[in-house]
Design a protein around this nucleic acid. Structure first.
Lengths: 335, 335
DNA sequence: TTGAAAGCGCTAACAT
DNA sequence: ATGTTAGCGCTTTCAA
């Protein structure tokens, strides 16, 4: 027996008005005489009536719910974005349907489709890589989609990011300015567009500093995890590098931990700079220097952009680039 | 113009069958002749028909969506639970509506109500404290609710937890067995039921070890954050304690960092043991010893319990207690 | 300012 | 095995 037995019809009957009037009251439509509004409100109160959002969604074709596809909710980077998304969504009275994709292409597609079936008003997609199938799925629907902290190589989907290429270039240039000549590039999958951009930034540095020579032996591709970083430590050390740019914080922390185990002094012998400046970078000793991305804002702005798209407002820029900075902490030398 | 213009009716017409038959095919009802099933499937494919889950929800009174209320999505403890919830939810074909509450009582109430309005089939609640209003809200609805990693002092709401009292007692007893006599209890809000239980465990230790005397000066109440832990370091040191039990990992890491800054050797001079064994405890040097809670399982089991409740299956135990353990790492001494 | 009535797209008896 | 027919609870013209 559902307690949710009271419908708009019950309220209408008891208040001796039509369903339409109740609907108007509930939706704050001004075209209601104050006295009848009052009467309706009283009955609503008395009956403890709660509008059924599903019925409303069917009738109005709006669910006031947006879908969020996230690779890993327990990952500090993405959950920070999610927090920003949630805050702004709440501000604009939207709810969030959250779906973890494990970064699995098949699962992304599946959850995307169920999100569509559930009539989301919009979708925010986060992922390290976007498959062509996914892109095609995006283009086959008319509901607005925004990428947060996620790159569409074709630049067709509205998105919010920082300039990863320029950021990594700056980070690495900083290391160059410290006199480092053998700088390692420690990254997650190089096929990921975001890492491709970072790699471009790495290469840019060589173009500007002709005395440096690019060496494949200084590029390390692995997975985003503490353990992988730790495993990599000896290879990084053996490569004779004196500084590393790392594309993920956990990876960077693992790398540093491994290097410390090998007796390497950080930052005296090897400098490290990472990419996300998540809280983790503040928890370790020494603190890890990092590119600072406005993680929360990346999510918040993406959500704000989505609201505009959902309202069919004009948006001046569909591919938003947020500013970054570099925070020098304990894992890089003071000069 | 919605691309989602094709309805079950369109399919029915083109396939020259009734809506009911299409519905049967879509829902895998076996009472359909293979040949007509095939025909319907073809039309579905051709038209790229996707069932509207909102309409289905209205008609069937099931949304196959569950609500999840979480204090902070970017907190390692809760997001680990969320991951477990999501995995099992996906396994049982449920979607998740996620709502961040900031641990704010008012917001919890608000999101709970919108979740009800959106006709969730069930709700998983996580929070550090449950207000009476919230409890009353829970009791006013018939949809199943499960608490994950969250304590209802009255024990009325189905829940999944570990035995926090016993766990903290064990952790502290370990510190006693190392010869410590002044053991600090460093906690978040003592009013939170979970911390009350831990406090009880702390007190239990004194009952069993008459040579120890309880002192208020050894109980530190603060907020869950790295900074607060760091601030607390000097007070903890000045209190002359030689060991601390901490109820939160970030707090513990902050405390350790602060103590290290003060030149205190960990674990030689002060031992630390924390409560959640999140990945963070592995990132710092020394590694932090911890009670190990099955975080993922806490969420997974809660979700599994919820599915049973939603299916009106008999459940033997509505208040599930999962096992814990203690992992001795670098912040406690080997004996 | 209010009401009547036609859907929204689907499910679920009930027939056949 | 298939079709008919009511709804599900609400919004939204269109009239009045």
């Amino acid at each position: 027996m559902d307690k949710q037995a009271i419908t708009i019809y019950d309220v209408a009957r008891q208040a001796e008005v039509s369903m339409a009037t109740v609907s108007r009251v509930v939706n704050g439509n001004p075209n209601v005489k104050p006295s009848t509004r009052k009467k309706v409100l009283e009955v609503i109160e008395k009956l403890d009536y709660r509008p059924n959002a599903v019925a409303r969604g069917l009738a109005s074709k709006k669910t006031t719910t947006i879908g969020v596809i996230i690779p890993d909710i327990s990952n500090a980077f993405f959950s920070s974005l999610a927090l920003g998304i949630d805050d702004i969504a709440t501000m604009y009275k939207y709810n969030i349907s959250l779906a973890n994709s494990d970064g699995d292409a098949q699962k992304e597609l599946t959850v995307f489709n169920t999100l569509l079936a559930k009539q989301m008003d919009g979708i925010i997609f986060m992922g390290r890589r976007i498959t062509d199938e996914m892109l095609e799925g995006f283009s086959r629907t008319y509901i607005p989609i925004v990428l947060a902290g996620t790159i569409d190589p074709k630049g067709e989907i509205p998105s919010v990011n920082i300039d990863y290429r320029s950021a990594s270039k700056d980070a690495i240039s900083l290391l160059v300015s410290h006199g480092n000549e053998k700088i390692a590039f420690v990254s997650g999958a190089l096929i990921d567009p975001i890492n491709k951009q970072r790699m471009n930034g790495y290469e840019d540095v060589f173009l500007e500093n002709r005395h440096l020579s690019y060496s494949e032996g200084l590029v390390f591709e692995t997975n985003y995890s503490f353990e992988k970083g730790k495993e990599l430590a000896k290879h990084v050390k053996n490569a004779g590098t004196t500084a590393c740019y790392v594309t993920d914080d956990e990876l960077a922390i693992g790398l540093m931990d491994g290097l410390l185990d090998l007796g390497v002094a950080i930052p005296e012998e090897i400098e490290i700079i990472t990419s996300n400046n998540s809280a983790l970078t503040e928890f370790v000793r020494p603190r890890i220097s990092s590119i600072t991305q406005p993680l929360y804002d990346l999510g918040a702005v993406a959500m704000r952009l989505l609201t505009k798209l959902m309202n069919k407002e004009e948006v001046e820029e569909r591919n938003v680039i947020l500013p970054y900075d570099i925070e020098e902490k304990g894992s890089t030398r003071k000069v």
